[in-house]
Amino acid sequence: DWEDIVRFLRKLFELGEEVVIGDWHNHHREEIKRLIEWLEKHF
């Protein structure tokens, strides 16, 4: 279910905002944000 995936990604992203998950999070933050925005537009 796409909504569950979007919710999971958003939760992960919000957690990442508070607890910076090292370089991985910083590197992928923009991609995650773009992916969430893309999914919201399409689903």
Rank of each mutant, 00 (worst) to 15 (best):
R29S: 14
W38A: 05
V6D: 03
H28W: 15
I36A: 02
E40K: 12
V20I: 14
W24M: 11
L9R: 00
H28Y: 15
E37T: 07
I32W: 12
D4Q: 11
L39T: 01
G16H: 13
W38Q: 02
L12V: 06
V20T: 08
R29C: 15
W38G: 01
I32G: 01
L9T: 00
L35D: 00
G16W: 15
G22S: 04
H27C: 15
K41I: 06
I36Y: 08
K33T: 08
H28A: 14
R29K: 12
W2C: 09
D23K: 03
D4I: 14
K41R: 14
I5P: 00
D4K: 15
L9G: 00
D4L: 14
E37P: 01
V20Q: 07
R7Y: 05
D1H: 09
R34K: 11
H42M: 15
K41V: 12
I36L: 08
W38N: 01
E30K: 04
H42V: 13
D1Y: 14
R10P: 00
L9H: 00
L9N: 00
G22M: 04
K33D: 04
L39W: 09
V19L: 10
D23Q: 03
N26P: 14
E14S: 05
E14H: 04
L15A: 03
L39A: 03
G22N: 10
I5Q: 01
I36R: 01
R7C: 05
E37L: 07
F43S: 02
H25T: 05
I5A: 02
V6H: 12
E40L: 15
I32L: 07
E37F: 05
W38K: 03
I32Q: 01
L39I: 12
E31A: 13
R29H: 14
E40S: 12
I5G: 00
E37N: 08
H28D: 09
H28R: 05
E37A: 06
K33Y: 07
I21E: 12
R10L: 13
L12S: 01
W24G: 07
L9S: 00
F8V: 04
F43P: 01
K41A: 05
V20C: 04
E17G: 10
I21L: 10
V20K: 12
H27V: 09
L15S: 04
W38R: 02
H25E: 06
W24S: 08
E30I: 06
W24Y: 08
D1F: 13
E37S: 06
L39C: 05
L35H: 01
W24A: 09
N26A: 11
G16V: 14
H42T: 04
R29V: 11
N26D: 14
R7I: 07
E18Y: 08
R29Y: 13
V20D: 08
V19A: 09
I32H: 03
N26R: 05
F43N: 02
L15M: 07
L39M: 02
H28V: 15
E3T: 10
V20G: 10
H28F: 15
D4Y: 14
E30F: 08
N26S: 11
W24P: 04
R29G: 07
V20E: 07
L12C: 07
I21P: 09
W2M: 02
W24V: 08
G16D: 05
E40Q: 13
H42N: 05
K33H: 04
E18R: 08
D4V: 13
L9E: 00
D23P: 06
K33V: 07
K33F: 07
L12A: 02
V6T: 04
E37G: 06
W2K: 01
H42L: 12
W24Q: 10
F13Q: 03
E30Y: 03
H25R: 05
L35V: 05
R7M: 02
D4A: 13
N26W: 10
E30W: 04
E30P: 03
L12P: 00
H25G: 11
F43R: 03
I21W: 13
K41L: 12
K33P: 01
E17H: 10
L15N: 03
L9K: 00
H28C: 10
E40M: 14
H27A: 11
D23I: 09
I21R: 05
R29W: 11
D23M: 07
N26T: 13
E17S: 11
F8D: 02
E31G: 07
K41D: 06
I32S: 01
E14Q: 13
E31S: 09
H42P: 03
R34H: 08
E30A: 08
F13A: 03
L12Q: 01
V19I: 11
E30D: 10
R29P: 10
I5H: 00
K11Q: 13
G16M: 15
K41W: 09
E18W: 13
I21S: 15
E37I: 09
R29I: 15
V6P: 01
E14P: 03
E3M: 14
L35N: 01
L15I: 06
I21V: 14
L15K: 03
R10V: 13
D1R: 08
V20N: 09
F43M: 10
V20Y: 09
R34S: 10
K41T: 13
R7D: 08
I5S: 00
E31L: 15
K33E: 08
L39D: 00
D1S: 11
F43L: 13
E17A: 13
H25N: 12
I5V: 07
H42K: 11
E37M: 06
E18C: 03
V6W: 15
E3I: 08
F43G: 03
D4F: 14
R10F: 11
R34G: 03
K41E: 08
G22F: 02
D23A: 05
L9W: 03
F43V: 12
N26Y: 04
R34A: 04
V6N: 03
E37K: 05
L9Q: 00
K11Y: 14
E40Y: 15
E18T: 08
L15H: 09
W2L: 02
K11C: 14
L12K: 01
W2Q: 01
L35K: 00
H28M: 14
N26C: 15
E18S: 14
D23H: 05
E18K: 14
D1V: 11
W2I: 07
F8S: 01
E14F: 06
H42E: 07
K33I: 11
E31Q: 12
H25M: 15
G22A: 03
I21K: 15
G22K: 06
F13D: 00
R29A: 12
I21C: 12
E18V: 07
E17V: 14
F43D: 03
F13T: 03
R7W: 07
V6C: 02
W38D: 01
D23Y: 09
E17I: 15
N26I: 11
E40H: 10
E37Y: 05
E31F: 15
R34D: 05
H27K: 08
H42C: 06
K41N: 04
K41Y: 07
W24E: 07
V20A: 09
I5F: 14
K11A: 09
E3D: 12
E14V: 04
K11L: 11
N26E: 10
E30H: 08
F8G: 02
F8E: 04
L35I: 04
W2N: 01
W38C: 07
E17R: 10
L12G: 00
V20M: 12
E3Y: 09
I5K: 02
E14N: 04
W2A: 01
R10H: 11
E3R: 11
E31H: 09
L39P: 00
E37Q: 07
V6G: 03
I36T: 04
V6Q: 02
L15F: 08
G16N: 07
H27P: 11
V6L: 13
E31K: 11
K33Q: 07
D1E: 05
K41G: 12
H27Q: 04
I5N: 00
L15C: 13
I36G: 01
V19Q: 06
F13R: 02
K11M: 14
W2E: 01
W2P: 01
H27W: 08
R7T: 07
R34T: 04
H42W: 15
V19F: 02
H25W: 15
G16F: 15
R29M: 08
R7Q: 07
V6E: 04
H28L: 15
E3S: 11
E40W: 15
R10W: 14
L12D: 00
E37H: 06
L15Y: 09
G22P: 12
W2H: 01
G16C: 15
K11I: 11
E18N: 12
H28E: 05
R29Q: 09
I32F: 12
R34F: 08
W2S: 01
D4T: 11
E31I: 15
E40P: 01
E18Q: 14
W2V: 02
I21D: 12
F8L: 08
E31W: 14
E37V: 05
W24R: 04
I36M: 06
G16P: 04
F13I: 03
H42Q: 03
G22R: 04
L15R: 06
R10E: 05
R34W: 08
L39N: 00
F8M: 11
R34I: 11
E3N: 09
W24H: 09
I36N: 01
W2G: 01
K33W: 13
W38P: 00
D1A: 07
F43H: 03
V6A: 10
R10N: 11
F13K: 02
E31M: 13
I5W: 11
